[in-house]
Amino acid sequence: MNKIISKEYFSERVIKFVVEAPLIAKSRKAGHFVMVRVGKKGERFPLTIAAADVERGTITLVVQRMGVSSSKLCALEVGDSITDLVGPLGQATHIENFGTVVCACGGVGTAPMMPIVTALKKAGNRVITVLAARNKDLVILEEQMRENSDEVIVMTDDGSYGSKGLVTNGVEMVINREKVDLCITIGPAIMMKFVSQLTKKYDVPTVASLNTIMVDGTGMCGACRVTVGGKTKFVCVDGPEFDAHQVDFDEMLMRLGGYREMEREAMERSIDKTGV
């Protein structure tokens, strides 16, 4: 049981939790994630460790409310405990001074991008963050990203905020403007696919942090498998970050859709019961 020390709303749908987890705080590195379970009937789901405080023995999680499981977590208050929390999992992000790095994120990928942006900046990179959302209301973590980036470019599909266009338009603009040494992308698979296609065209090395379906998160089940460079990899132990140009995004998209119907049903059931 891991006690919630603080809860802060970044927006209606995005919440920052500071949680007691002394052992994880001590051993985690940027890019690591934890598996979380809320309630005895809860599912295990992955969340990136956004920050850690070794002295206080806490870790920070930034959660975006999506479906049943993230909603259950978001409903917890300070003093409540998370039923199960295990980690740190995955391979840490490879952080060094690459030069200029474009961090392209959107949707579910914005929260897990936070610690990477912070670590890259600390390592001396010029960090340009491209933040994409469908409309103004869905732009999240802008302020936090600005604190740690040299520049933040906001893109909205409908032009209600920032520039009108997709994340790829933002990235392309930067590539056309200056030399980019590395691109990191986290977001919906379809978004990462298009970012990857774009940067391949310009020969910009690109890392994608894949958010596949996971069950155990420890390499035991293979639910998270993806094809990278023609080989099957487990995202939870071999990743979550891979060379985007080698990832078979079409297959990943197909696999992500696998439980969509059941997720929707679970959400409807949960709404019926609890109103969340």
Binding site: K41, E43, D216, C221, G222, T232, G258, Y259, E263, S270
Partner: peptide, 29 residues
């Protein structure tokens, strides 16, 4: 082999036995 609906027995049995996924009350599908 990576098509939707193909999985390891570990995944299948973990969902059903550890996560109680066949129970409608469980969040795991």
């Amino acid at each position: 082999e990576n098509l939707v609906g193909i999985m390891s027995s570990n995944e299948y049995l973990t969902r059903v036995n550890l996560m109680d996924a066949a129970n409608p009350e469980s969040d795991t599908p």
